[in-house]
Structures are given as structure tokens and as C-alpha cells.
Design a protein around this nucleic acid. Structure first.
Lengths: 132, 132
DNA sequence: CTTTTTGCAAACCCTTTGCAAGACA
DNA sequence: TGTCTTGCAAAGGGTTTGCAAAAAG
């Protein structure tokens, strides 16, 4: 019967990540937290982020060839990653399992970005695992 | 003026990864290569995989919270990841920047998988970078 | 013979873990 | 008080790099 406790560290880390709109890596969150609170340990930040992800208060976004990034926007939305500068941009569009692709493409057109690829990954439970 | 050379190692590694249909991690490729050729160094495998990716002969697929995986299928296609067993399945569908989402969903229905989320990420060059 | 590539080990980055001290309820 | 959380440092995966020896062209 483990009961989660509220701590000032968790609050600080939560507030910090919720203010970062740049899809930060864990290390970037650590750095930001340390600006104001250098005493907070790196492991504490990692643990707090993980807890938030587990509770659904934060999204973990994987980016090829780099550290995972975090996104405080937990509503379903999608991304555009610039292969030159490495930044990740948000795309807003209809949520659900069947989002409107043309709407996403429209947003990208508006932003004058050059699109070289799409990557769609679904997740869930496969048949084998469901049958167990 | 560096000129790439052909070596037996590169050939072995290339042949090996092209036979692996399971979206292996680099370590899994190393293990497979070592089954027949234990003398080939780990770094050589990593370097060969990276070169193949750079040349477009191999795709690198990022999976949240784990090592990157490789996919010898370089045609555009998409994935379904089982959150329980961690396996990654291929989905075949119309290629291009505007794939047919309903076709992908149809395939998933056929496989009786339970879908809990979609992740769509475009890549390319953002406006700022294009302007430079 | 020149330059690339290899194998090894060490270095590196990112993240997790063990543990004693500290904080919450 | 009981036990959850913290900070630290060490360990752990995964990947890259420096370097001398080997191989390609």
C-alpha cells in the first residue's frame, strides 16, 4: 500500500516542465530546474518525469537518434521535426485514432516547411498479447 | 576526396541486416553477425549500420524508451508497436506524404489488435532553416 | 604506397538504481 | 513514527571515438 506524497521538488519540476514548450529532453528539464533550484538532484528530476508520464500527466515523445523528449500537452497531437535544426514543432488537428491527415498537411503548407517524410506509428496491444 | 571502400565486413553486415525482418536493434544485429562471424567488432557493425542509413539503404526507426531499431525496408511504410510485448509490426499501405490512413486502420482491424494511440510525425526542413 | 577501415578499449551520453539521510503524513 | 522521497554516486544500457594495425585500391 504505497501512497504517493507531495513534495516541493515534484511541484517545482512539474511547474517547470509545464512551462517548457520546446519538447525538452530530460537533461534540458534538469538544466531549467537548476537555474532556480540547483539543489535538486538529477535523479529526482528523472524520477518525477517518469511518474508524470506513468500518471498520464506528461507525454514522452521519441525522436530518432536522440534522447526522448517530453511534452506537457497530453491531448493527442502530432509533430513535425526539422532535420536540419532538430527542433520539433506541434501540429494541432482532430484527435482520435483517425486524425485528419489533410488538416495536418494543410498546417504544414501554411508553415512553408518542406516535407520529406511521414512516420505513422500506432500503438496498442497485439492479438497474441490480448489472447493471454 | 574520401572514397568508400568495399570490405567483407560491410558485405556480411549488410546481408545479415537485410535478412532480419524483426526491426532489430543494433545489438541484435551484432549478435546475429557474431553467430557466424564472431571476429567482427561491435563498432564495425555500428559504423556499417550508420553508413547504410546515411546512404538510404536502411531505415532507422525510433521507439519510445528503447534503443533505435533498423528496418531494411526502405520504402515508406508504417508501424504498429505492441506496448505489452514490445514487438513492432509492419503496416503496408499507399506510400507518399499522404498515405491512406483508413487502409492502415483496416489492416490493424484485420490483425485484431487493440489500438490505443497513433503518433504521426512528419519530417523535413522548417521555414527558418530553408531561408538560410 | 596511400588512404580507408577495422578491432579494441576507453570514453560518452542518457537513464536507472542502491543506499543513507531527510521529509511527509 | 512509518514509509515515501531525496540526493548522491555508482552502475547500467547503448553508441561513439581515438588509435595502431590491417586491408583495399
Amino acid at each position: 500500500m504505497k501512497k504517493e506524497r507531495n513534495t516541493t521538488q515534484k511541484e517545482i519540476i512539474g511547474n517547470t516542465v509545464r512551462r517548457m514548450t520546446t519538447h525538452p529532453t530530460a537533461e534540458e528539464v534538469v538544466a531549467k530546474v537548476h537555474e532556480e533550484h540547483p539543489g535538486i538532484g538529477r535523479a529526482t528530476v528523472y524520477r518525477a518525469l517518469k511518474r508524470m508520464v506513468d500518471k498520464g500527466d506528461l507525454k514522452q515523445v521519441s525522436i530518432t537518434g536522440g534522447a526522448d523528449r517530453f511534452d506537457f500537452r497530453t491531448e493527442e497531437h502530432h509533430h513535425f521535426k526539422c532535420n536540419r535544426c532538430g527542433r520539433v514543432f506541434d501540429l494541432d488537428a482532430e484527435t482520435g485514432c483517425s486524425p485528419d491527415l489533410s488538416e495536418l498537411l494543410g498546417q504544414l503548407d501554411d508553415s512553408s516547411a518542406e516535407i520529406t517524410g511521414v512516420n505513422i506509428s500506432f500503438e496498442g496491444i497485439c492479438r497474441c498479447c490480448k489472447e493471454e
